[in-house]
Amino acid sequence: MTTPTMAMKVLRAPRVRRSSTTFLISAVFLGVVTLAAIFAPLIAPYPPNQVDLLNIQAGPSPAHWLGTDALGRDTLSRMMFGARTALLAPLLVVVFSTIVGILLGLLAGWRGGWIDSVLGRIFDVIFAFPALLLAIMAVALFGKGLVAPVVAMSIAYAPFVARLTRSLIASERSRPYVAAYRVQGFGGGFIALRRVLPNVMPIVGAQSTLNFGYVLAELAALSFLGLGVQAPTADWGAMVNEAQAGLIGGYFLPALVPAVAIVLVVVAVNVIGEELSDRIGGEIPA
């Protein structure tokens, strides 16, 4: 009954579509880090665990661009190998939590009713536990290493994705195009999985990208606490931990390099995630 009028749309100043410089820098930075991680065995100047006791706590030099640590191991090489666990583990968490979250969110949002209520309460319970606490509990139960924390963090992060998916699906479900599919004779499963889900995926994807940053920081914290990646394997969080002792002696570099790397990657991921969600135009609940 209402006549759509262009006037309201026009009043908003047209937005200039342009990738921001920070977005490009972040993307390039993440690309470089990822490539370094993938090709670490080929491009790293030294094996990550090669001890050189004659060259401990060395400053930057042509031989060791980022210096060496307390055991004389090359920091740059360890950073490259460390990036593999630092990036791969959060990636696994994001993939698992997204898959589980989407499935549960779809179920809750599409079916509604008691399924929605029960799942909602379960999510609330999981929300009550900080992800890091869940991960530490998992380590306590199943032993140190990356497997238990990755599983625990996947469980902890799935409700974020699920709750977002649920609300998106629920609002999408009441739209006329879904009714139109029903009238055409399409089955509920087809409409939900093949038609509605792809329409909400961009927003869910942006949320998952943001999650990646948080998970990376939390897993690094876990390794720093000595509960994640175990020595002598190179990992950014573990490297900060190992370099603690050196800090008292005034050797900042071995701790500073991985710490800065963690911060930069998290910031870069957040920049990209927010830019993506801006472009999609969806609101990402915190």
């Binding site: 759509p4 739209r175 006329p176 195009y177 009714a179 139109a180 599919y181 009238v183 055409q184 038609r195 792809p198 329409n199």
Partner: peptide, 14 residues
């Protein structure tokens, strides 16, 4: 079959 009121909403945007 049915044709809905608002063609902006009754077609799948994708």
């Amino acid at each position: 079959q049915m044709v809905f009121q608002d063609p902006y909403l009754s077609l799948d945007p994708r």
